[in-house]
Nucleic acid binder design. Structure first.
Length: 682
DNA sequence: AGAAGCTCAA
């Protein structure tokens, strides 16, 4: 017969899990009936050292189950993150046994992890009925955790306030609750309360949350003073705490402080490496982030999803497609490629590296999608000239019940403008009104631009008129809208209305719009007057785009030398099209001298643009310098330069057709007519 | 008899 004392000794020996099998076989061999104490001990040991299934088997074989035994199996499932199973077992337990403090704290933990607030509230109700459970600190901390994980931090505070003498863990749970719920100021205020509270010790876990709160606020000053406090109180060690500090310095852009800390750390884990990488990646040192990633892998540290995301962001920032692809492969190898955050990071990398097809492939394979990844693919498609695809994505966003934000709508309007699709623009307009986004000024400006670019000046005017509170962005976009349509006089009228009858002061963009409108409409004198107004009356500094238009305007009235003089004043690198505009004017006024200078500049800046060579060739021809003309044309032939063709778009029902407006346009029109016939026949 | 709070991305 085995004595109780022997059993206890055996359990002591089993604490490392090694003698577990012997213990179990002993129970079977000796025919020792599992009394409840013994069974409970055994299940508890099994739950620590064996897979859940094995423990479950033992549990199922145990005939008489005490609360202690139930608790062991509940803890086992909870530790294995099988929270739903934990709750389902709890409901079974409830039928036969009365849960104790320990049961309740496990169940509350499962509710918190599942964010099952209603379920948790029922358990809370049960807690309140028992005075003993209600004053238990462990249950209290589980309740606070439940409410704070479910975003109900006020309810968490209510629980906390009811506890007469909260201990360090309870205080810390509250502080971290505020921090996790994006309320770092309250977290620090709570910490201040904790510091002056009597008889409560602050430990390193408390400080982790406090430091994180400082990091969340990007408050280096507060962080430094906490660091100072830590030094005074002797909290200079602890990996997690050092990691939190590393993150603080990283978030506040103190690269040196972070790198210094990282170097001096006695030990580092994945989080240390991840924090340091994120610090580099977010502070414009993407190269260093990737170097660190390589070093980490070389040292045999296994990168997790967070690390891969940081590495992908570093690739994105440096347009490192090769690196991105390598990390993609690694993610596939680790089975992380379908993770929603990894997939989103991959989409961002591919889109930023001008590889929309790869990004779309990643997107198509995602098993589940959230609003963030939809935005990523939408923005990426628009940026990469996949306007048609982006409209499909936008429909998918709506079909999946996600609410696009103003940024998404601005992007989709860019796509509409690019395609020139009036009906789509009009639909999106309707959506902005329904979605309550009509107040957004950037969205209003996008709508104006979109309508104008889709050929509906009336639509643009209607949007403009409906906006009561017009800011400079709205005014500028309306000026630009008149400009697109060659309505120079209307643009000038609007500009006068803006500067005389509104409180809005035109900025650089407004001037660019009005100057461009003048240029398109051939209002040369007015344009030059407005340019002078911009510099003298408004004290704004023109950039190369403003100068470009001025050069064009001066060129039109033959002030070629003056125009060239202005080009000399441009501070930034001069774009090819500015010299191109001057070259064009030189042809009109037959000024070969300046024309040759402009041509040389334009060829240097953009050697592949056939149109500029043809222009020069025509100038030589005008002067009857046939040899020079032929020479230029021969050059174009030899280099196989082609003139870019203009492209037109029409919208038939919901099909978008584009055709190229060159000598083949006849064929294209025929195709469109055929398409029309098919559609009509439907 | 058995127990709690935390750090890297988004």
């Amino acid at each position: 017969m085995i004595t109780g004392e022997q059993v206890i000794k055996f359990f002591e020996a089993c604490k490392n899990g090694r003698c577990l099998n012997q213990l179990h076989s002993l129970t079977i061999k000796t025919g020792f009936k599992l009394d409840t104490f013994f069974a409970a001990k055994l299940i508890d040991l099994y739950s620590r050292f064996t897979p859940v299934e094995t423990t479950r088997k033992l549990f199922d074989e145990t005939p008489h189950r005490t609360v202690y035994i139930w608790n062991s199996i509940l803890k086992c499932y909870c530790r294995d993150k099988q929270y739903k199973e934990t709750l389902s077992l709890f409901s079974h337990l409830f039928l036969s046994e009365k849960p104790d403090l320990y049961t309740i704290s496990i169940v509350l933990k499962a509710c918190a992890a599942l964010k099952a607030l209603n379920h948790g509230k029922i358990v809370h109700g049960f807690v309140r009925k028992s005075a003993q459970i209600n004053r238990d600190l462990f249950v209290g901390s589980a309740l606070i955790e439940l409410y704070s994980k479910c975003g109900e931090i006020d309810d968490a505070l209510c629980v906390f306030e009811e506890i007469p003498e909260p201990d360090t863990v309870l205080w810390t749970t509250m502080i971290s609750g505020y921090e996790q719920n994006g309320e770092p100021i309250q977290a620090l205020e709570f910490f201040a309360r904790m510091v002056i509270a009597k008889g409560v010790l602050i430990d390193s876990i408390t400080l982790i949350s406090v430091v994180s709160a400082c990091a969340q606020m990007f408050d280096l000053k507060a962080g430094r003073s906490i660091h100072g406090y830590m030094t005074r109180m002797g909290f200079e060690s602890g990996l997690s705490l050092l990691n939190a500090l590393l993150n603080l310095y990283g978030k506040t852009g103190s690269i040196h402080a972070a790198a210094n800390m990282f170097e001096k750390m006695p030990e580092r884990d994945v989080i240390s490496w991840g924090s340091m990488m994120a610090c580099y990646a977010h502070n414009g040192c993407a190269r260093e982030a990737l170097d660190l990633f390589d070093e980490m892998v070389a040292r045999g540290i296994d990168p997790n999803a967070v690390i891969l995301i940081s590495a992908l962001q570093a690739c994105e920032a440096t347009c490192n497609l090769q690196g991105g692809k390598q990390i993609h492969k690694l993610a596939i190898k680790k089975g992380l490629d379908l993770d929603i955050l990894i997939s989103t990071a991959l989409i961002d990398v591919y889109m930023n590296c001008f590889s929309p097809d790869e990004a779309i492939e990643v997107f198509d394979e995602m098993p589940e999608r959230d609003a963030v990844c939809f935005s990523a693919i939408l923005h990426g498609c628009v940026e990469n000239g996949r306007a048609g695809k982006s409209i499909g994505i936008f429909r998918e966003i709506l079909a999946n019940g996600f609410q696009p934000d103003a940024f998404d709508v601005v992007k989709i309007l860019t796509a509409c403008s690019e395609l020139g699709v009036f009906q789509q623009t009009s639909c999106v307009h309707g959506f902005t009104i329904k979605g309550g986004l009509a107040d957004n000024s950037f969205l209003g400006a996008s709508l104006i631009e979109s309508y104008a670019k889709c050929g509906s000046l009336d639509g643009a005017i209607a949007v403009f008129r409906q906006i009561i509170d017009r800011d400079v962005v709205i005014w500028s976009s309306m000026l630009a809208a008149y400009g697109f349509h060659g309505k120079g006089q209307e643009a000038l009228q609007l500009f006068n209305q803006m500067i005389k009858h509104s409180a809005v002061r035109p900025n650089e963009v407004s001037f660019l719009s009005i100057l461009s409108a003048c240029s398109h409409a051939g209002l040369v004198k007015q344009g030059i007057k407005i340019f002078n107004m911009m510099v003298k009356d408004y004290g704004l500094t023109p950039n190369s785009k403003h100068y470009g238009i001025l050069v064009d305007l001066l060129g039109r009235i033959g002030e070629l030398e003056k125009a060239m003089g202005f080009i000399g004043q441009i501070q930034e690198p001069v774009e090819a099209n500015i010299w191109g505009a001057l070259l064009n004017s030189c042809r009109i006024y037959q000024n070969m001298e300046i024309g040759e200078i402009a041509a040389q500049k334009v060829f240097d800046l953009n050697p592949c643009h056939a149109g500029h060579y043809i222009l020069l060739s025509n100038m030589y021809a005008d002067e009857k310098r046939w040899d020079n003309a032929a020479e230029v044309r021969k050059f174009v032939r030899e280099k196989q330069l082609k003139k870019f063709s203009g492209e037109s778009v029409i919208e038939i029902r919901d099909e978008v057709c584009s055709f190229i407006a060159n000598d083949r346009s006849h064929q294209d029109s025929k195709q469109i007519l055929e398409l029309l016939c098919i559609l009509e026949g439907r």
